[in-house]
């Protein structure tokens, strides 16, 4: 498609998803989100007050105690408020396992170009199986993807 940019990445958890990008400057502990709305509750977090629900979440890494990290993501998942896909810089065992057992596409080792191009609200298609991310120009709505 004209205007699209495709960048390489590395598959951690399989699957394909499209959605709006939400970029976090800070590491994320899913336990400190509101399961009912997906909003980040952690004080002082760069995403405080913003919702991760249905987003393609771009963040440096996970953090925090293993059990609460997994349960935080699980509580979002069973309410349909988990991120559609996750793009990270530094994988950890906790986030990797959670993504696999909850079947959320997760990729890392993304082409640095990606981070230069994207901003909040852009739409991307994360295809973990093909190990690539497609950035869709902003004038196309997410509904037209797939």
């Amino acid at each position: 498609m004209k205007g699209e940019t495709i960048v390489k990445c590395h598959r951690i958890s399989e699957g394909k998803a499209a959605g709006e990008v939400l970029i976090s400057q800070d590491d994320i502990l899913f336990y400190l989100t509101d399961p009912e709305s997906g909003r980040v509750l952690e004080k002082g977090h760069s995403l405080e007050g913003k919702s991760v629900a249905g987003k393609v979440l771009v963040f440096p890494a996970g953090k925090g105690s293993s059990s609460v990290q997994v349960d935080g993501l699980y509580q979002l998942m069973i309410r349909g408020n988990a991120p559609k896909a996750m793009i990270i810089e530094r994988p950890d065992t906790i986030l990797v396992t959670s993504a696999i057992i909850m079947e959320i596409p997760l990729v890392d080792q993304v082409d640095p170009l990606f981070y230069e191009l994207i901003k909040d609200g852009d739409c991307v298609v994360v295809d973990a199986d093909q190990e690539q991310i497609t950035i869709i120009p902003k004038d196309r709505s997410p509904g037209q993807v797939d």
């Binding site: 951690i12 059990s67 609460v68 349960d71 993501l73 699980y74 994988p91 990797v96």
Partner: peptide, 22 residues
């Protein structure tokens, strides 16, 4: 994901089970 070449046997495990739903 982390480039492991093989599996190793473990002799001890601690599970941080939490009584949480997940």
């Amino acid at each position: 994901c982390f480039g492991a070449k093989r599996l190793l046997e473990v002799s001890r495990v601690h599970v941080a089970s939490s009584n949480q739903e997940a």
